[in-house]
Design a protein around this nucleic acid. Sequence first.
DNA 1: TCTGGGGTCCTAGGACCC
DNA 2: TCTGGGGTCCTAGGACCC
Length: 418
Amino acid sequence: MRIALADCNNFFVSCERVFDPKLEGKPVVVLSSNDGVIVARSNEAKALGVPMGGAMFEWKDFLRTNGVIMLSGNHALYADMSRRVMATLSALAPEIEIYSVDEAFLAFEDDDPAETICREMRTVVKRRTGIPISIGIAPTKTLAKAVNHLAKRHQEFGGVLDLEGRNPDDILDTVEVGEVWGIGRQYEKLLIGSGVRTARAFKDRPDDWIRRRMGLHGLQVAWELRGVPCSGFHRGEGEPRKSVISSRSFGRPVTTLSALKEAVATHAAAAAETLREDGLRAALLTVFLGFKRQGYGQGYPSGLSVRLDPPTNDTSEILRAVQAIVERIFLPGASYRKAGIRMAELTTQDADQLRLFGPSGTDPKRRAFLAVVDKVNAEWGSGTLKFAAEGVDRAWRSRSASRTPRYTTDWDQLPSVK
DNA sequence: TCTGGGGTCCTAGGACCC
DNA sequence: TCTGGGGTCCTAGGACCC
């Protein structure tokens, strides 16, 4: 089997460009929520030296002086564009594993004309969705990732690079060790400190040397670079999810219990909706609050978990649990900068256990009620129906100063053709 | 003064059991 | 003063990914 990695180029920026061609050829960045950090850059912005993850309070002036266009993240748009890209890839590839919003692994048999198919895919995806992609082909996922980087970086490959027929060592000599999939900042530092600078030097280290410093995971990365598959191919969407998180930092510091409760309730409602969408219930709920970086409250416990028995996805039940937790962990006088909730130990709805005592699962009336809420929100926009606990005024909401319209997911925001 | 949000997996250490 | 060996389960923390 051979693996291809198809990866959208500068995905968020490319999505924006589909609907606003004026952005073409210009330096553009897309920002995180609260317009806090840079999460996507066009090639022109990369060329100016703007880093991924750069903090806006440091970069704003530079971006302005250099005429870089700044956009707040429009994730409804990106999710919809992602669906279109993945649907197109699925139609053309024999097997697909969707890995992230902008990447998919494709599996080919050894005698498939992989490179030809991939070049065709690249053309069709661009034509149907407007999104440019690059593809790397190799015997393992980690190698496909590395080859994909090179396909993206070097024009002459035309966006598709197949490792077959090339000497892997020559390729891996040109890949810095920190660029390897699975080697992050900490391990990069450790490896460079030991004189290991390239992907090739890393994979040529003895197994026990790697194992001792980087555990099982590091060993797997090395083996994959040597061409031995260790990560498996998961058809479709991959593994079922194990947790749902909803969290956000506040637009301004929050100091009151009531605002905190509203914010956490909003996350609870969002997380519960995701659970229902995926047909899941949660048995473990964690609420966490974040203090300002420095200041009163450091070291004070800011999170607390409770079990939900029986497991549930009912917003009202979750809200009750959540409100009690917030009251318990609230520290009067502290300044909070973020809040969130995590639902874990997920089970599928139909795996509901019959219980000896007490109610088993959500009763049919509640279920019907929640289905109506979800349906209305799906049709009329999320937030059309809200629970009272989520609040009305919501001064704590995060900032998103320059979000582009939801061109493809909201009837009122469709692009108009003049 | 200001630094995202949503995920996964592994490891180490403590509590507990026989 | 000496102080086993083999398990399991849980949690916290750290590492990684996009």
